[in-house]
Design a binder for these strands. Sequence first.
DNA 1: CGAACAGTTGAATATGTGTTCAACTATATT
DNA 2: AATATAGTTGAACACATATTCAACTGTTCG
Lengths: 122, 122
Amino acid sequence: MIPNIPEIDKCDCNIIHSDVVDRVRRSMPDEEVIMDLADFFKVFGDTTRVGILSALNESEMCVCDIAALLGMTKSAISHQLRVLKQSKLVKYRRDGKVVYYSLDDDHVKTIFDQGLSHVEEK
Amino acid sequence: MIPNIPEIDKCDCNIIHSDVVDRVRRSMPDEEVIMDLADFFKVFGDTTRVGILSALNESEMCVCDIAALLGMTKSAISHQLRVLKQSKLVKYRRDGKVVYYSLDDDHVKTIFDQGLSHVEEK
DNA sequence: CGAACAGTTGAATATGTGTTCAACTATATT
DNA sequence: AATATAGTTGAACACATATTCAACTGTTCG
């Protein structure tokens, strides 16, 4: 296996410590994993989505109630719920006209707690 | 204490389950905390920054070496290191002409691991 | 001193993304 | 069937942000 060397090397400088660079390169996750990770965290990087996740962490809720809670339109909430759905962070069930959303991931709470301890510390 | 009710209520629908909304509203973190959390996770939501953090998780590194490792310019890396510095996720030391960056947060690894298990599962 | 290199910075550009708006679907009620 | 309500969707717009480029600082070495 040849280590991943970027096809087009835009680096505008010399490698100073090639031993370190080689060792780190071997230990790095694949570029695809890096992208998946960034995409995953991107979902948590929006106030509206964090608000929705915080709410659903307390209780299953329908779109109207979330919209009322956060003082936003159904449309805005629905768009963000779609993002959360695609990331498999929330699931939903329909009951008549009403669609109820709830958390669909065990990691959400842990990730929130880690984020909170960082935010509170510094 | 009066619960936080958004000043301008843009909600375009009726509250369906007012008991649930009231209960969730009381349990929600302050809006400021929600914003801090989102800002914190926003930092993890970029491929370049995740790459830098992954690298520094393995070893202290200088800007040139990170640029070479990720196949990017010193400038691009430096800009992102500034973001990571502001979020208190990395620290640095200067040795002559060379500036060495390293991780400055215990939560980084835990957060990465949680993200990885989510990404790998689904 | 002056050249060379590591790194930073600000402005400009390009791309990504969240909200709005209007139109739409689906279900329930009369 | 007609109406009302919950929710979704796509396009447009406005805003945020990552990279580039060029100019800059700081340090080392001849």
